[in-house]
Design a protein around this nucleic acid. Structure first.
Lengths: 397, 397
DNA sequence: GATTTTTGGTGTTTGACACAACATATCAGC
DNA sequence: GCTGATATGTTGTGTCAAACACCAAAAATC
């Protein structure tokens, strides 16, 4: 026989590269600011090591130091290390009725956000052109005042993140679009593409409702269906090709309604926004209003529909809890409204239906990042290269 | 004196400890033997570094070198590095009708296996006592010929692995048993406990049907239900408390049958072994026979039942594929028999029902490790400490 | 103003690893 | 059988990240 098959052809030469600058910058980015003393404790590194690393990051322009904030105590005060928001990422969110372009600084602050509404569902090229035009308009300012590390794109569909291909985005009608390449060519910035719900999950973990948690599920309910993101051990679960997290097609009902995906009884055919809006007497409108409108809607019909949908949602959540044993499930969009419309009901259902161990521990909470969510998530995608290797990256460009 | 300089003031959160000895030993352990040249390629390290590391591992008695195997080629031959099977782990598998104790050498070879059948379902203490007695019987041999690194225990239930508590094992009737502590006290070896299906998943990834894959789902069908293990990015997904993977309680049918877990329509109430055995005219018997017996069973009844169960199993698999986007799903126990009884059907169902991207890529395969599976898996648990830090660990004891 | 407490900065040491030069073992061709 | 090509093991040196020990600085307390 020939020699043993080599499962991995050959990993890139340098495997054990120093991860500590990355850890420092990531901590500062996620917390906004952090004193050197806090960094020392959080990383477990030596004070002097932290000193050196912060110095390097400051020299690279990624962080700056400022006097300690109010909070005074015995001992020499420790200056705060701030993420430098002039190091920024462009973020693009593509939806069925709009393309939103944003600028997000290191530290997670949304510096600019421009929503460009479209009259009809944009094609991939149209979305790219809109974003490129908006970015071109900002260009002189971007070049003068910011250091742009890249561009992150959120797409509601199946995305192969490594090569930036949108395999299928059913609600946009896109199929096999090389979106990352298109964005890179149109804007000149290195672009990365990922599923919108995955990015939202990361954003909520880093800056939102699940700050500090390492095992969570994010579920979003939008006009076009239900998507999800999975975070385990603090990392986004992508699956082999980056398609993981399609919770909208979990089986929850045996009534024979066929989903656009081809299967029967999918969560997103049973639990959807349209009937809720109708019951509540709204059309479109603000996402925040829905919960209140449902609670005060006249007659029993609205509540019955809420209950029906909560039942199916509960089934999906039961599966999730039994399979993932997460710390929290974060709900957004109309799913958050469902949660708010009947407080406690979902949590009670879940306790009753899921297995004792995991069911008792999970926390249900609404998303908190609101309209900045996708900007922060997409920017995080663009930041990821910088965060993984801050110094190499900083010199490289 | 006050304030003596503490060598390690803070718990040394030394994340960036050298991981390379671990990588080398893990590779050798998983492959059995590997030449130094192969190790150089696989790790991407320098030849000289590999030389030093292998030397250290050999000095610690974890590996040994032997002349290259047959295969000759141009150039100086590279000696094979073998995992030393004298470094071994004890493995215990607790089932409703037996306790199995095994000895597994580094490299994954099962050196001994003793199945102790019980007349009734053992309590936790009984299981511990049985295992401890068997181990006591081997003790002199173990001490003379092996270096035992620890003891791994597989339990069919919810296990908090960090503290070794069995929270709930419904089929064994165990609840809140501090099993790791009990085993450690009874045997003197450091014991670690985990869910059986999780361990099986790891074993199949490392030595079995999914060698080299990094994203897979393992599903086992046994007399007492359906359990699963999840591996993503080459790592076992445990959830916050280690309860993840309870696929048996996925919702698959709305016919109102209540599961022992309290919910309705669980996979394991719809898809179960007993009716299949009955249709096939077997009782208990060898796991291998079932598939053949089902195919040759007289009348249409057996096939109808197979079809019914395949339908429900397909629904669960559809969820899995949409949620995880795995490379492979490995089926064991009677689920493997179902797969074999109607070749292709499950795969076709899956293609039709799951979303286009992930559905096309997934591979369904039966488990291959057979009766050694749980021994290898449980031993892997005991080896994990050694593999994570081979040199520190080797000196420590 | 002295003491205590906590932190930052500097120089030295350690250890892991790469790199280069050299030694060695096999095959292929003559 | 000798010779060169090739792949590998071995040894010595250089580099870099990070720990460590010591000193200086800056509050808060006495």
């Amino acid at each position: 026989m020939t020699a043993i098959d080599l499962p991995h052809p050959a990993p890139p030469g340098d495997a054990s590269r120093s991860a500590n600058p990355s850890r420092i910058l990531t901590l500062v980015h996620h917390h906004g600011k952090l004193s050197r003393a806090q960094l020392t404790r959080l990383t477990g590194l030596n004070r002097s090591t932290v000193s050196v690393l912060v110095g390097q990051l400051a020299a690279a322009g990624l962080v700056y130091e400022a006097a300690a904030s109010g909070e005074s105590q015995v001992g020499r005060p420790s200056p705060d290390v701030h993420a430098n928001p002039a190091v920024a990422a462009l973020a693009v969110n593509t939806e069925i009725d709009a393309v939103t372009i944003g600028l997000v600084g290191l530290g997670g602050q949304v510096l600019k956000k421009i929503r460009y509404a479209t009259e009809r569902i944009p094609t991939a090229s149209e979305a790219v052109n809109i974003a490129a035009a908006v970015i071109a308009g900002m260009r002189s300012e971007l070049e003068a005042r910011y250091k742009i590390v890249g561009l992150g794109v959120a797409v509601p569909g199946l995305v192969t993140t490594v090569d930036g291909m949108v395999r299928l985005a059913p609600h946009l009608g896109w199929e096999d679009e090389p979106l990352a390449r298109m964005f890179t060519q149109a804007t000149g910035y290195p672009a990365t593409v990922a599923n919108d719900a995955s990015l939202a999950a990361e954003a909520e973990m880093v800056f939102g409702a699940a700050t500090g948690l390492r095992n969570l599920i994010y579920l979003n309910g939008g006009a076009s269906g239900i998507g999800g993101g999975i975070i385990t051990e603090g990392r986004l679960l992508t699956g082999v090709s980056g398609y993981a997290g399609e919770f909208g097609h979990t089986f929850v009902a045996a009534n024979g309604r066929r989903c656009h995906c081809g299967a029967l009884g999918c969560l997103e055919t049973e639990v959807s926004q349209a009937p809720l809006l109708e019951m509540a007497g709204l059309d479109g409108g603000e996402p925040g209003e829905l919960a209140g409108a449902l609670r005060t809607a006249p007659g029993m019909e609205a509540m019955a529909e809420v209950r029906r949908q909560l039942g199916h949602l509960g089934t999906a959540l039961r599966n999730i809890v039994n399979i993932f044993n997460p710390e929290a499930i974060v709900l957004n969009g109309f799913l958050a409204a469902l949660l708010a419309a009947a407080p406690g009901e979902l949590q009670d259902n879940l306790r009753a239906e899921s297995m004792r161990g995991p069911g008792a521990e999970v926390r249900l909470s609404p998303a908190v990042l609101g309209s900045d969510l996708m900007m922060v998530g997409a920017a995080e995608l663009a930041f990821s290269g910088l965060l993984a290797d801050p110094l190499g990256h900083a010199e490289g460009n």
